[in-house]
Design a protein around this nucleic acid. Structure first.
Lengths: 247, 247
DNA sequence: GGACGTTCCGTACGGCGTACGGTACACCGT
DNA sequence: ACGGTGTACCGTACGCCGTACGGAACGTCC
């Protein structure tokens, strides 16, 4: 359980891999790209917990140890997976309105997390400095360029928005895929949970949880998870707008 | 790697455990509480990746399989760990000013993540419905009570703030503990990384990343990770304040 | 003292990451 | 055409993991 990445290995080797210096192809057609792609496919469909070197190798019709010719270890493979998916989003010309630009950045990140939920579970301290991470950073800074913010304010503001997106996406995405993972619909889950909760839960002790929880429960479906994401995003952008205006 | 929790087991059993119905104590002094406490201590110090039933048992001077008398499995143990740490924060009377209340909630959550970074790595869809989770929800809703929001708006607003805190905390906490985990200071890491990056990085292709990254790099230490957390929080609260005012 | 229920746990199975060392192939100089 | 050499591939094995299973040890009651 729990996800570590990179770290241990030779940084120079990692960097060479990320930037695809010396990209070979073996006699079975194996390559870093194919390994990374297979690993991403596995993680997308079965979660990062189910990602194993043996399974990746099997998917490629190859012995497990063959992977180590191309990739130093699982940690580095995950680094490569991260930078790879960071390169997926299209990065079209940004609109003239900076707020629309920032909205696009936020939604694009949410879409990324939706497509690759395992991204939410890999640690982000010391990220792998690959080409796509840098391209993403550069592109996203473009949303905040030319509106009167200092460099540091730009960085901090972007970090704030991405922080919000990460946190909100975590809730939204994991909630959305809970039925699949557990083989149990949300309704079924509540039908099991509710009577159990009723036996131990004292509404008098937790009046707000009781009242608001009931309201939120009824409204669920009407007010969905996407709506909550948008609500918070708009509040955050309102706050940023006020900051930009007063700057 | 990667973290799953709960799910598989009998929901009734899980609920009984969370609410500590039928809490026994074995002849060796073993109990659910002691197991959970030992597991939390392990996860706090070595990360959730290093948490294993065998290590928990060893810490308690007991055979690994003895744990299964008290806890159905590792997933349920993690559920118990979550609810346990959710009960740790003091929940003092909230100030009269709702914005101060919400700030307190946000910072208190950040502190929780700082104390138990592994919390950031456990999935949050279908959370364990324990007493402390509910108490926390009730308490935090109190920050938004009586300011003219509907029940659903209260829930959504709280979710937004907690989403921001989770995302920002993920960045802050993991960054903060990277030196420990890797045995390498941030400066040392950059000293290794910088020359490698210079060889592959073209500033012309990524002018913003280059310029802003450099500024942010220089300012690091002055503008720290806490500052970024506070900045985004204030922006979000500004936006919420505007929403409350116009409501 | 005996029976019974519960707690404790040794052993084992299948899966993991990966170290190590061997094999077999592609390509080279002759 | 042929032997030599480097590299791609991978079988085996080690020490971890979660936990199923069944037996041993114990407290408790008759």
């Amino acid at each position: 359980m729990a996800v570590e990445h990179s770290g241990t290995g030779d940084p120079a080797r990692s960097m060479a891999l990320l930037w695809r210096a010396a990209d070979r192809e073996g006699r079975t057609g194996l390559s870093v790209d194919r390994i990374v792609a297979a690993a991403i496919a596995l993680a997308d469909s079965d979660g990062i917990a189910a990602l194993s070197m043996r399974k990746v190798a099997e998917k490629l019709g190859v012995g497990a140890m063959s992977l180590y010719t191309y990739v130093p270890g699982k940690g580095e493979l995950i680094d490569l997976m991260i930078d790879q998916v960071l390169g997926e989003p299209e990065r079209p010309e940004l609109p003239a309105n900076w707020r629309a630009r920032l909205e696009h950045v936020a939604r694009s990140n949410l879409a990324l997390y939706r497509a690759h939920p395992w991204m939410l579970q890999v640690g982000t301290g010391r990220p792998p400095m690959g080409p796509n991470l840098i391209a993403k950073y550069d592109y996203e800074l473009g949303a905040l360029e030319g509106i009167g913010l200092s460099d540091i304010e730009m960085d901090t503001t972007l970090t704030s928005v991405l922080g919000y997106v990460t946190g909100a996406a975590q809730a939204a995405v994991e909630f959305a895929q809970a039925p699949d993972r557990s083989g149990m619909s949300d309704e079924a889950w509540w039908e099991v949970q509710a009577p159990l909760l009723e036996k131990v839960f004292d509404p008098k002790r937790f009046p707000l949880a009781s009242r608001v929880g009931a309201s939120a429960g009824e409204a669920y479906g009407l007010i969905d998870v996407d709506h909550a994401f948008e609500f918070g995003l708009q509040r955050l952008l309102d706050g940023i707008e006020a900051f930009v205006a007063r700057n």
